[in-house]
Design a protein around this nucleic acid. Structure first.
Length: 712
DNA sequence: AATCGCTGTCATCTG
DNA sequence: GCCAGATGACAGCGA
């Protein structure tokens, strides 16, 4: 992740790398086989991943460890049913091995293009990739249709099928991602990936396939770079894709070339798409146009290009950067929509730079669906023309779930870097301001620690009456809820008063407190804080609201240690702290409470994790034992059957042998009186049965038999 | 409004 | 007896 971050700091183009390396990579194998997120960082497990809540890892797709309430079971069974239908189509079957999705679009300079006011829709490129959908249900339907569109044709279609790549990114698109324009991400539905993969997976359960990405390519070609694009395309084509690759291309190679996707595959479009897409053709058309022809491009192209003319801030505000998709939407939802489109102004120091237009069906017009909200052209069109069907067409295939997963992966830093760069370039915002975009909730373990050199920390050290807070965040073993506390707004806390803290227990798990920006620390109205809508100007309040209650208490006490340190410090040091600062008994009691609560909080977290792990382990054990039992039952049945067959064969052989043998008097041997015995050395001997057969004896003969046995 | 999951906290027990 | 840790129970919050 550090490497990725480094890449990001080097330029905006690395956003593509982000998509390829972290954002859009979907390794469903691991997701299906184990308890891993479908989104996977190619660098392997990262600290961010480690920060993923444990409870999010307990479900997987193979149906064994899926939580009973796991909603993905719906997908599981739905896809299984779909697969049965697909199986019914018969063989031979060639399966796509991967599906790459790119959510890249470039943001041109706002001065480059003028958007015709009556431009109506996004490009056919997008339409080619995504079929139209209206409504959430339609979205799902469409997703399934996409699945079928990729699978069914390969089942029944004539001719050889591509061995890889049911859908393929146009080569031009691959190249275009390497241009140096600002690139924004759009959202993508990983449901597509999941469903599609389930299709593959269920037909060929052992298919060693990773769907690395879902493909949706939106590249806003920039007028001044079209020639460059064309040159690159030409180069790329001439050199057989062997030209020196840029970082972006390397990134692409990680997901496309490495998987053998390039150069093969079928169009992604559904066969039912009203606009049968030929993505390659469209891209070729689009990218091969001279600059001066941009005014009369192919109908599919100028609309897209004309969108570039839209107010860039507006357009961006309706796009979805990764960060925007990552941030929790609740607070931002409070912002009233502007002109029918929810926007966030980029001047917010801690707010999202680009507004996710709508990820909620409640925010969408009835004709639109959730999920696909961030496709640039679609959004621009919608934002400026009150929506269009093409918007809905795009919506259906995008989903914020991918970015939720990214968020789970803890990519905040990377994404924020990207957003910071984007904002700085596009809107001239001081990047320093953007550095403080950390949107840690201050609540969960995923919160990242704020280093001592962070702006807030240094600011605290200079503004606070106590300089001990410089070390804040260095504490270990405590929730980052405290670690990440910015202490900027605590300068005004007054001296400690028992009345301030001793009366109530605030069950405010968010530990937000705008009230701490006020001089009086006597009130910690968690309720009021919770209900306070998020505003654009409360960046400082944002920091204050991330402070934990205990942290605030600690600072109010003027204790030269943070709550995190109080919790994590050794007992001896803590005792010294209690004794060496002239604290009152009440203060000491509060410090002990802080320590106790902090310790207990960690203990509770560990305890719950252990509990879940134990439950998961037990579920797995149950599954394993059930499978073992089934296997043993099958073995027993098989063994019994084999034993019966062997007995019959033995009987037949015995009869055959006895029929050929004669005793000393020339009489044939009977199985009733003789038996065949196999000795240890392999010899088979005929033994006389000394005891009469029980079957030949009668009930009345029993005493006689015993007498006979006793007599000899 | 009801429900569920997550989280923090308290009380209690154990080592 | 104190402390740290574990855990059940409860309550608050958000989805």
């Amino acid at each position: 992740m550090q490497n990725v971050k480094k890449y990001f700091t080097e330029g905006l183009i690395q956003f593509t790398i982000l998509l390829s390396l972290i954002g859009v990579r979907v390794d469903v194998d691991s997701y299906l086989n184990g308890s891993y997120s479908p989104l996977e960082i190619s660098d392997g497990p990262s600290s961010a991943y480690i920060q993923t809540p444990f409870h999010s890892l307990r479900d997987n797709w193979d149906g064994y460890s899926v939580h009973p309430k796991c909603p993905e079971l719906d997908y599981f069974f739905a896809c299984r049913r779909l697969l049965d239908e697909v199986r019914a189509l018969g063989s031979p079957i060639r399966f796509p091995t991967q599906l790459s999705a790119w959510l890249v679009h470039q943001v041109p300079d706002s001065s480059e293009f003028r958007e015709p006011p009556n431009s109506t829709s996004n490009s056919n490129v997008s339409a080619g990739l995504l079929s139209e959908s209206t409504g959430e249900e339609a979205n799902d339907t469409e997703l399934l249709a996409v699945d079928e569109s990729h699978t069914a044709p390969q089942l029944s279609g004539p001719g050889p099928y591509p061995s890889t790549g049911a859908c393929e990114i146009p080569n031009e698109a691959n190249i275009s991602t390497s241009i140096s324009s600002p690139i924004l991400a759009t959202k993508i539905s990983h449901h597509v990936v999941k469903k599609y993969y389930v299709c593959i997976y269920k037909i060929v359960p052992k298919l060693p396939v990773s769907i690395t990405a879902v493909v949706i390519v939106f590249v806003y070609a920039i007028k001044t770079e079209v020639e460059e694009l064309k040159g690159r395309i030409q180069e790329y084509g001439d050199e057989g894709r062997e030209e020196p690759v840029s970082l972006t291309q390397l990134a692409l190679s990680s997901t496309l070339e490495h998987e053998g996707l390039l150069g093969s595959g079928a169009p992604l479009s559904s066969s039912e798409d009203p606009h049968p897409p030929d993505i390659d053709q469209h891209w070729s058309q689009f990218l091969s146009l001279p600059i001066y022809e941009f005014d009369d491009l192919d109908p599919l192209v100028p609309q897209q290009l004309s969108d570039l003319d839209a107010d860039i801030s507006s357009a961006i505000s309706q796009d979805v950067s990764l960060r925007d998709a990552m941030v929790t939407g609740s607070v931002y939802d409070m912002i009233p929509p502007r002109g029918g489109v929810r926007t966030l102004v980029a001047r917010q120091p801690r707010g999202p730079l680009f507004r996710l237009e709508s990820t909620n069906s409640s925010n969408s017009s009835p004709g639109t669906t959730t999920g696909l909200v961030a496709l640039p052209n679609a959004v621009v069109v919608n934002g400026t023309r009150n929506g269009s069907s093409s918007h809905g067409a795009l919506e259906g295939c995008l989903d914020e779930a991918v970015f939720d997963q990214i968020n789970l992966l803890g990519l905040d830093g990377c994404l924020e870097t990207m957003d910071a760069q984007l904002l700085g370039i596009l809107q001239g915002i001081d990047p320093r301001v953007l550095e403080d975009l950390d949107s840690d909730s201050g609540l969960s373990l995923e919160s990242s620690s704020r280093g001592p050199d962070s702006p807030s920390a240094s600011e605290v050290s200079s503004s606070s009456s106590s300089s001990f807070f410089e070390d804040e965040g260095g504490a270990t073993g405590y929730s980052s809820e405290v670690d990440s506390l910015p202490s900027k707004s605590i300068a005004n806390y007054h001296t400690w008063s028992p009345v301030d803290f001793s009366e109530s227990v605030w069950h405010d798990h968010s530990y937000s407190s705008a009230a701490f920006s006020e001089p009086s620390a006597t009130t910690f109205p968690h309720k009021a804080i919770k209900e306070e809508p998020f505003s654009d100007e409360d960046g400082e309040d944002d920091e204050a609201r991330e402070l934990s209650r205990d942290e605030l208490r600690t600072r109010a006490l003027h204790v030269p240690f943070s709550a995190a340190e109080i919790v994590s410090m050794p007992v001896e040091e803590f005792l010294e702290l209690l004794e060496g600062h002239g604290l009152s008994p009440t203060q000491v009691a509060f410090l002990r409470d802080i320590r106790r609560r902090g310790k207990n909080k960690l203990a509770a977290q560990n305890c719950r994790k252990r509990k879940l792990d134990a439950i998961t382990g037990l579920q797995e054990e149950v599954e394993r034992l059930q499978a073992q039992r089934s296997r043993l039952l099958r073995e027993r049945q098989h063994t019994a059957k084999a034993l019966g067959a062997a007995g019959q064969r033995m009987e037949h052989l015995s009869r055959d042998i006895f029929s050929r043998l004669r005793d000393g008097s020339g009489r044939p041997l009977t199985p009733e009186r003789y038996t065949l015995q196999c000795e240890a050395n392999g010899r088979v001997v005929v033994q006389h049965i000394r005891r009469p057969s029980v079957a030949t004896t009668t009930a009345g003969g029993k005493p006689d038999k015993r007498k006979k046995e006793k007599k000899p």
